[in-house]
Design a protein around this nucleic acid. Structure first.
Length: 275
DNA sequence: AGCCTTTGACCAGCG
DNA sequence: TCGCTGGTCAAAGGC
């Protein structure tokens, strides 16, 4: 009985080492694929289709390992941090979510407008608020009382085609080097412009679009443009949504041919982690 | 030219 | 009713 804590710790450590080792192997495979792409010039081979699932799997493994190491949370317990706060239109449950109702939906200070009847909204806490597969246009920016950071308001780029989707991005903390954001989505997209496959789509990826058109025009956010290394190195337990975001970012790096820096740091980090 | 962000003004909900 | 505050609009300027 008295030896249980130590045995659990060892088991956790073993599990973490297994996960990190698996992630390392997968990323090494990915590195091989990327090098192949570099030699071939990258035009003909749909390399993202091969690399993206590997990256996702590796990142999830690392995420699991981080969680095990930090808090002993088991793999099965790890969830995305998306919270549905209300849905007046009941039908669609297609988005990944942890369905818990948030009675504080109104406003932080109990003031301000109520959301219109018929609108649904959900919250996603993330370190990468701008890569969700859709194209957004910023229409407002507001300093919020009691918050150190301004709140940004976005609507779907295709609003003129009837899409009423909106999102609100509020940075909640920068206690670590990488800030954290609360993203509140309102209304579902009725447009059909989501980039479901990364960059194999004829449209530019949303993240690429944001890099070129959006985040570069946001001085208070620009300095936080994330890298794979930063996100892994922050040591938090990344949910699947974050791993997904990170793999999207990695694919964008590959598209733009500047993946080597991040991958190099990521591999060095893994070596240090595993040893 | 077209789309974007920025930003001040305005609107509307709440105490 | 009034003041505070969050949400939205729209003009201006940039890319």
């Amino acid at each position: 009985m008295s030896s249980m804590p130590m045995r659990n710790l060892n088991r956790d450590q073993e599990a973490a080492i297994r996960e990190v080792g698996r992630g390392y192997d997968i990323i090494k495979q990915l590195q091989g694929l990327l090098q192949l792409k570099s030699r071939k010039g990258g035009e003909a081979i749909p390399m993202h289709e091969l690399a993206e699932p590997l990256f996702r799997e590796a990142l999830q493994s690392l995420n699991h390992a981080l969680c095990i190491m930090r808090s002993g949370v088991s793999k099965a317990e790890i969830k995305s941090e998306i919270v549905v706060i209300e849905s007046d239109s009941p039908a669609d449950s297609s988005h990944e979510s942890v369905t818990s109702y948030d009675s504080n939906q109104r406003l932080e200070n109990g003031r301000g407008k109520r959301r219109r009847v018929g609108e649904s909204s959900w919250i996603n806490n993330t370190s990468m608020p701008y890569d969700d597969g859709y194209q957004w246009r910023k229409y407002g920016d507001k300093k919020i009382s009691g918050s150190d950071f301004p709140r940004s308001y976005f609507r779907c780029t295709y609003k003129d085609q009837g899409c009423q989707a909106k999102k609100l991005v509020q940075q909640t903390s920068n206690k670590s080097d990488v800030p954290f954001f609360r993203v509140t989505y309102t209304n579902k997209h009725t447009c059909n412009f989501q980039n479901t496959s990364l960059s194999s789509s004829p449209q530019p990826s949303a993240f690429t679009s944001i890099q070129h058109n959006g985040i570069n025009h946001m001085p208070h956010l620009q300095e936080y443009k994330p890298s794979a290394y930063q996100l892994l190195n922050q040591g938090s337990c990344l949910g699947d949504a974050h791993a997904n975001n990170l793999s999207n970012f990695a694919s964008t790096c590959m598209d733009e041919g500047n993946w080597e820096w991040d991958l190099d740091f990521l591999l060095k980090d893994l070596v240090g982690f595993a040893s």
